[in-house]
Nucleic acid binder design. Structure first.
Ligand SMILES: [Mn+2]
Ligand SMILES: [Mn+2]
Ligand SMILES: [Zn+2]
Ligand SMILES: [Zn+2]
Lengths: 149, 149
DNA sequence: TTCAAAAATGATACTTTGTATCAATTGGAG
DNA sequence: CTCCAATTGATACAAAGTATCATTTTTGAA
C-alpha cells in the first residue's frame, strides 16, 4: 500500500481520493476481479466509471496490477504479486480453479531459448509465460482430478 | 484448406457457404487480422457480423485459428501455424514488428518446471508460452535495434 | 431425387468493455 | 494560501462480442 503510493508519486502522479479508494479496495482483494466489479463496488463512493478504467490502465503501467488472461477473455485484474518497479519479467503460475496468481521464484526457461528462437529465424527479445495448475488450497477442496504434463 | 474442412466435418459441423468463404479468406491471409477486418472484407458477400464471430470462436476451438495477444488487446487472429487436431501445446514466437507467428519446434521449458511450480504450492497442469522477438524479414528492414535477454 | 430435421444464418437488439470530450474540481508545490 | 496542471465525473460514443428468433441451408436417409 505504502509502496503503491510511493510508486504513484515517484512517477509524478497525484494521490487523489478515487485512487486512494481504489488502492484500498485492491489491497483487500486477494482474488482476481473485473473492472465492472470494481466500479460497482466503488460507485457508491461517487467514483466514475471512466476514472476506474483510467486507474486500471495506470496501475497496470505502474506494475501495481497485473492482468489475468483467463480463458473467456482479458477482463480480469489482480494486485501484482511482484514488487512495483522491478524488471517487469513476471513468469506466473495461475490456479485454474480460483484464479490465484503467484510469481515464479525462478524462470523455468531453458538456457538455450535464444538458440531455439533463432532456429525459427527470430532474434529473441523477451517472453510471456503463464503456467497453469491447481493451488494447494483448491487441491485440498476438490481432490484428485486431471493431471497433465 | 482440405485439412480445415476435414477438421470441421470430423467434428460434426456443416460446411456452409459462409464458412467456406471465411476459410478461403483465411488461407489467403498470412498476417494477423481482426474480426472487424474480416467482417468488412466479407460482408459484401452477404455474410453477417454474428456469423463472423461465431465462426471465429468455432475455428479457435478447432485449432484452425490462433488468437494473438498483441499489446493493445486480444483482438487479433491468425491461421494456426500448427496442424489441427494435434496436442494443443503451442509454444509460439511472435514478431513484435509485423505480428507474424511461428510455432516453436521444441518446448523451451526446463525439465524441472513441475518442481518449480511445486515450490509455489501448485500442481502443474500446463502452460502458455509466447516468445517475442523480431523475425528475420523485419530484422533486415529495420536493422539494429534494442535487444534484450 | 426428394424431403424433413437439425444446424446454421442474418437481422436486430443488446451487453460489456473501454475511450474521447469537456466543464468543474482538487492536489500539492511553492 | 494560492494557483495551475492534473484529475475527475458525466455524457456520449466506439469496439467487441452475444442472445434471440424467424428464415434458409446442409446433409443424409428414404
Ligand atoms: Mn521467464
Ligand atoms: Mn511448452
Ligand atoms: Zn486455487
Ligand atoms: Zn516480422
Amino acid at each position: 500500500m505504502e509502496e503503491w503510493i510511493n510508486q504513484l508519486q515517484r512517477n509524478g502522479y497525484k494521490l487523489t481520493r478515487p485512487r486512494r479508494l481504489l488502492l484500498e479496495y485492491l489491497e483487500s482483494m486477494e482474488r482476481p476481479f473485473t473492472a465492472d466489479e470494481l466500479y460497482h463496488e466503488l460507485s457508491r463512493s461517487g467514483i466514475g466509471r471512466a476514472t476506474v478504467f483510467r486507474a486500471l490502465k495506470l496501475f497496470l503501467e505502474l506494475d501495481i496490477l497485473v492482468r489475468v488472461h483467463l480463458e473467456e477473455g482479458c477482463q480480469h485484474y489482480q494486485a501484482s504479486p511482484g514488487f512495483p518497479g522491478d524488471d517487469h519479467h513476471h513468469d506466473r503460475i495461475i490456479c485454474r480453479s480460483c484464479g490465484d496468481i503467484q510469481l515464479l521464484d525462478q524462470c523455468p526457461m531453458r538456457d538455450d531459448v535464444s538458440t531455439i528462437a533463432h532456429r525459427s529465424g527470430y532474434r529473441l527479445q523477451g517472453h510471456h509465460l503463464d503456467l497453469y495448475g491447481i493451488c494447494s488450497r483448491c487441491d485440498q477442496k476438490t481432490h484428485g482430478l486431471d493431471a497433465e504434463e
